[in-house]
Amino acid sequence: MNIVKAQKQNYVTIKGTKDGLTLYLDDTCSFQDLEREIDILLSKRQYVQEDSPLIGVVLKVGNRYLTEQQEERLKILIRKKRNLFVQSIDSNVMTKEEAERWKKETEIVSVAKIIRSGQVLKVSGDLLLIGDVNPGGTVMASGNIFIMGSLKGSAHAGTEGNRDAIIAASSMDPLQLRISDVLLSTLQEISNEGNGTMECAYIDENDTIVIDRVQQLSHLRPNLSRFEGE
């Protein structure tokens, strides 16, 4: 009778990249088995060197949910390997609170009204305003701002630090534009020739707000079309 020995399953796969190491972790085994195998693999000489600079480690945990305590245990375990540290932890799983926050940050809030002088409209996520923003009126959003009308007041997109946010309007003649922490104010700084085309404002590579044709967005912000095909 031939006896076939079952081969031990590998719970951790290591791949080297130009930026460091990536660890692909099995998402079906116990957390203790993961800790044990990570400890053994990263104790090998090729990964642990006293004189080498710090090497970042990315953990790919798949469909496993890690608690904050488990994440901290893995960070401590890997940091003990002298020149290694956890750079990021990527998971396909999120908590209910994280999912609700993501939904809130990415949803489009549609409002049909005129924002008059002294009024402020502020939303979480993207804002789609069907109407005008009159001089003295203000619209604010943590995401992008799309105005199907005239922007003659102030607009602040990316209020929570999103520097990739944009402001678009059918007629762009604002008193002030702000994206994240970058400000563009005074009528002299804002060029509008009244050509009748929809325009958009964004932060360029020089940390300056630029106004351009809205057609440029497909190249500048390809993620804006994330809903296409759904």
Score class of each variant (00 low, 15 high):
I108A: 08
R163F: 10
A168T: 14
K75N: 10
V123A: 09
I76H: 08
V86W: 07
V133G: 00
E107P: 01
N144K: 04
I147Q: 01
S154I: 03
N134G: 02
V139A: 04
E105L: 09
E105V: 05
V111C: 09
K80A: 12
V133A: 02
V109C: 10
G149L: 02
E100L: 15
K80N: 12
G143F: 00
D132C: 05
V93G: 09
D90M: 09
E100I: 12
E105I: 04
R79D: 13
K152C: 08
L127R: 10
V123C: 10
G153M: 03
L128S: 11
G125I: 06
A157E: 01
S117D: 12
A168D: 02
P135A: 11
A112G: 06
K103V: 13
D90H: 12
G118D: 05
M140P: 00
H156E: 05
V139P: 04
I147C: 03
G136Q: 07
N83F: 10
N162W: 04
D164Y: 09
G161S: 08
M172N: 01
V133W: 01
W102I: 12
L128K: 08
V93H: 09
E100R: 13
I130M: 12
G118I: 03
S124F: 11
N162C: 07
K80M: 12
A112H: 10
K81W: 07
L84C: 11
A99F: 14
I108H: 03
I147F: 02
G118V: 04
N92Y: 11
V139E: 00
A99L: 13
K103Y: 14
I78Y: 05
E98R: 14
A141V: 04
A155C: 05
L74A: 01
I78V: 11
M94I: 15
R73Y: 07
R163H: 11
S110Q: 13
V86N: 07
G143W: 00
T159S: 13
D90G: 04
V111A: 12
V139G: 02
K113T: 15
G149W: 00
K113E: 15
K152V: 00
I167T: 05
K152I: 00
L77M: 08
A112P: 04
L77S: 02
M172H: 01
E105C: 04
Q119K: 12
V109H: 06
F146I: 08
I167K: 02
P135L: 06
L151Y: 00
G136V: 05
T138M: 11
A168V: 13
S117W: 01
R79K: 15
D173A: 07
I115T: 06
R82F: 11
I166C: 03
L129V: 05
A112T: 14
G125S: 11
A155R: 00
S154Y: 01
G136E: 06
D132H: 07
M148C: 09
N134A: 14
D132Q: 04
W102V: 10
K96R: 14
R163K: 13
S110G: 06
A157R: 03
S171I: 11
A165F: 03
K96Y: 12
G136M: 07
K81L: 09
S142W: 01
L74Y: 01
L127N: 11
F85I: 08
N134Q: 14
K81D: 07
N92G: 12
S150N: 04
G131K: 07
